[in-house]
Design a protein around this nucleic acid. Structure first.
Lengths: 146, 146
DNA sequence: CTGCCAGTTCAAGCCGACTTGAGGTCAAGC
DNA sequence: GCTTGACCTCAAGTCGGCTTGAACTGGCAG
C-alpha cells in the first residue's frame, strides 16, 4: 500500500497535478490524507485515473464518470450504460464514415469547381438538412501521456 | 435573385437568427444590404450556409471554413485539405471503433467485476497510456433541422 | 399618427474541462 | 535557524460557438 505525492501521481498517471486537484474537487478521486498541506494519494488512485481516462476516451463526461463509482469508491459500471455508449459511438462512426467518403470523393473529383460535382452537392444537401449534424464526442485535445 | 429577410433565411437554413448575425460578424456570410436597420440576404446565402454546415459536420472550425472562401466570396476548397481532414476522420474512426469493441466486450463480459475481465483491463491500460486519447471532433449539440 | 413587434446593437453569459496566476505555507536540506 | 521550492488555495481566465438580455429603431397596419 504505497503512498504517492501529487507529483509522483501526476507522473505515473500522465496528467498535470492541476488536473488531479480538479478531479479531487469534483469528487472523482480522493487523497488518503495530508502530510502538512500536501496531499497524499494511495497507489490505487492510479488505476482509478486509468478508468477515468478510459471513460473520457469513450466520450463520457466527468459527471457521468463520477456516477460510475459507488459511494464505497469501487467501480459500479452499468453494462447497459456501456452498451448505450457503444451504440452512440456506432452512430458517430457511421456519420464520420459518410463524411469521410464524401470528403475523399470531393478531393478526387474532377469537376472544375466543387459545386459542379454531383456527389459534393449531395453531401452539401445532406449537411444542410441536418443529417450530418453531430451529437457525440466532445473529446479533449491530445495525448497526455507524460 | 430573390432576397430574404433574416427570419426567412434562418427558417430555410435551419439555424437561429442569432447564428446568422454571429456568422456575419465572423465574416462567414454577408448580407447584401439593409432595409432600414434590417439585414437583407441574397438567396445564395442558403447555399453558403449549407457549405458551412458541411464544413462543421466534417469537423472544420469556423475559422477554417472562413478560409475556404476566397475574398471574391466563392468557395476555394483545397483538395489536399479535404484529404487531410478525411485522414484525420479515419484516425478518429479507428479509435472510436476500438473503443466501441472494448465497450461491447465489457458489457457482455461475464467476469464478476469489470476489473477482473482481462479485456477490460487491457483497454483500461490502453486509455491510461494515452493511446485512446482524442484530438478530433468538437462537434456541436444536435440536429438543427428546423 | 401611432403603436406594434420583428429586427437591431453591444456586452455578457454559458458549457466543459481544465489551466493559470497571485499570494501563502511548510518540510527538508544545509 | 534559514532558505528553498514544491505544494497549497481561491479566483479568474481560456477556448469555440453560440445564446441571452437589455435597451433601442423603424417599417407598416390600422
Amino acid at each position: 500500500m504505497k503512498v504517492l505525492d501529487i507529483a509522483e501521481t501526476a507522473r505515473r498517471a500522465g496528467v498535470p497535478a492541476s488536473t488531479l486537484r480538479y478531479y479531487e474537487e469534483k469528487g472523482l478521486i480522493a487523497s488518503i490524507g495530508r502530510r502538512g498541506l500536501r496531499r497524499v494519494f494511495d497507489e490505487s488512485v492510479i488505476e482509478r485515473l486509468a478508468l477515468i481516462a478510459l471513460g473520457r476516451a469513450a466520450g463520457f463526461s466527468l459527471d457521468e464518470i463520477a456516477m460510475m463509482f459507488g459511494p464505497d469508491g469501487r467501480p459500479r459500471i452499468d453494462r447497459r450504460m456501456l452498451t448505450a455508449k457503444a451504440d452512440e459511438l456506432d452512430k458517430t462512426i457511421r456519420r464520420l464514415s459518410a463524411m469521410q467518403d464524401g470528403l475523399r470523393h470531393a478531393a478526387a473529383c474532377r469537376a472544375p469547381s466543387h459545386m459542379e460535382c454531383p456527389v459534393f452537392r449531395r453531401i452539401v444537401r445532406a449537411a444542410a438538412s441536418g443529417a450530418l449534424a453531430a451529437r457525440a464526442p466532445r473529446l479533449s485535445k491530445g495525448p497526455k501521456s507524460a
